[in-house]
Design a binder for these strands. Structure first.
Length: 265
DNA sequence: CGTCCACGTCTAC
DNA sequence: TAGACCTGGACGG
């Protein structure tokens, strides 16, 4: 999916486009099988509401706020989910599944593969750990306090995908983080982290770099903020993921491809 | 045509 | 720990 950097860019996009607008309508595409009850949202949208967004790892939140109260929607964006603000009359994205609207604009949530999910709630998903970018200190503490847990008794390239500890790290970020450390990523995670404590800093630095470059432009996702020169920047920045010259594709326990540096094979 | 692959979770044997 | 959930692009015969 969009990983930490891309989720943060989506959240920026929502804030940048919506800060001066109010919304009063929601539409859900009936082709989507989501069972989420949106009646609380429909209720607050009977008045005009402000929209504010925030991200935490791979979770994205939108607050709908009027003078009395607020309702929060929490999203997981799946493999291909994204947001785009569209002026009425212009073409909306293909595979739009949710729209928040007023007379002039539609904020569209579109998602080719329909893996994105949403829920109404009061807080971030407690199964997911602190954000390595926006909550670095508590992210770091939680990992260091958990090195004797089961998840850290397997190869680090597996552990890095565990969202209870590495919220926001996904398949390209793990390759870019581990590729930049000169240790075999098949080493058991607790040992790996003890030998290479800088990996925790890289869990902050690497997503931030990706964010500053405008995020990954792999298959199904691209940023809607039209960031300058971002395409070339990201492509030369990404050195390991999907790089057949330098890396060899192996499958992890979840059958996802991990791109391991050939020097370890 | 067919098979494989994709930035991710979920849930059911 | 396999599938399930989805669409569509790449590539092979």
């Amino acid at each position: 999916m969009p990983e930490l950097a891309e989720i943060k860019i989506m959240s920026d996009h929502i804030n940048n486009k919506c800060s001066d607008k109010k919304f009063n309508k929601i539409w859900k595409n009936p082709v989507h099988k989501s069972k989420t009850d949106l009646s609380d949202l429909e209720k607050i949208l009977s008045s005009k509401v402000y929209i504010k967004s925030q991200s935490r790892g791979k979770e994205l939140k939108i607050d709908f706020i009027n003078s009395q109260n607020s309702v929060s929607l929490y999203f997981m964006m799946g493999m291909s989910g994204n947001f785009k603000m569209v002026k009425k009359g212009l073409e909306e994205p293909k595979h739009t599944h949710l729209k928040f609207s007023n007379d002039d604009y539609d904020l569209c949530m579109y998602d080719l593969r329909r893996f994105a999910r949403w829920r109404i709630g009061k807080d971030w998903n407690e199964e997911r750990g602190p954000c390595p970018v926006s909550e670095f200190d508590s992210f770091r503490k939680k990992v260091l306090d958990s090195l004797d847990k089961k998840s850290f008794n397997k190869p680090i390239y597996e552990t890095l995908m565990d969202q209870e500890y590495f919220n926001g790290i996904g398949n390209y970020l793990r390759a870019e983080i581990l590729g930049r450390i000169d240790t075999d990523p098949r080493l058991i995670a607790s040992d790996y982290i003890k030998n290479n404590p800088s990996i925790l800093d890289l869990c902050n630095i690497i997503p931030r770099e990706a964010y500053q470059l405008g995020g990954g432009r792999l298959k199904d996702w691209y940023n809607n903020e039209d960031l300058l020169n971002s395409e070339k920047g990201f492509e030369s920045w990404m050195q390991f993921y999907s790089n057949k010259e330098r890396c060899f594709p192996i499958k992890d326990k979840n059958d996802r491809t991990f791109w391991i540096d050939k020097k370890w094979i």
